[in-house]
Design a protein around this nucleic acid. Sequence first.
DNA 1: GTACATGCAAAGGGTTTGCAAACGG
DNA 2: CCGTTTGCAAACCCTTTGCATGTAC
Lengths: 137, 137
Amino acid sequence: MAEETGIEKLCRERNLRLTGQRRTVARVLSDSADHPDVDTVYRRASRIDPHISIATVYRTLKLFEDANVLTRHDFGGGRARYEEAGEHHDHLIDVETGAVKEFYDAELEEMKSRIAERLGFELVDHRLELYGRRRRS
Amino acid sequence: MAEETGIEKLCRERNLRLTGQRRTVARVLSDSADHPDVDTVYRRASRIDPHISIATVYRTLKLFEDANVLTRHDFGGGRARYEEAGEHHDHLIDVETGAVKEFYDAELEEMKSRIAERLGFELVDHRLELYGRRRRS
DNA sequence: GTACATGCAAAGGGTTTGCAAACGG
DNA sequence: CCGTTTGCAAACCCTTTGCATGTAC
């Protein structure tokens, strides 16, 4: 219960004031294997702290995102989704359930920067999303 | 002036009622080499028809999108951007200007479906966006 | 003519913000 | 203690929608 999450550690390193609400949001994201949207984070956080407000959840997620503690994604549907920052990877979204699978392919990564270079650009960021339907065995 | 755009042709083929406003929006998109957002389409359309309303622009863009006459993109920033539908291609967005470059790489395309397959999915859609900074020569 | 499209303004959904009260270091 | 953070509600931005009017076919 009193264990510190990696996110909390990062907050101290970056001199972010560690309030109860921030600890709560940090814990929710640390415990989430999916890529929850803001409302989901809010609902999960509310189970830990019933008084937390959605405004604080929004503010905290943005704070964490700016501090590179979390990564924000936009998989369509007009709502942001978050995950703990870490190694770069791409996403495959199940069009039927919205579930997200992460994957990494070195060859693909290399191809991305090669293409940007060919077009005369230095690759700053990139995103690849595959939308698929689970194959019936 | 009386020339028919490809989009208008598609409208007739798909039995979409060809109103003045739809012709206007079609013309704007046919004449746009960039990937305008809704407000930009509205402003350009207003120069042709000063009485067109933003609601009609929204409705028409959605109609055209559903009819596969236009493609909608979300390059971040929370506003949709449109382009005339055509061959599939990916996008490189200049992070400094927002300008969009289109590109196509067959090897990359093949890799996408190969990866989806490997993960047990049938590829339904995909999107790759590279965000880059123009290299100073 | 008649079903469908338009304009207007109001409503919606996600996100941000001003302000006074609460709180972390 | 003092500056930062929070909760609340109102504001914001983009987009959609209800309704009366206008229009393509």
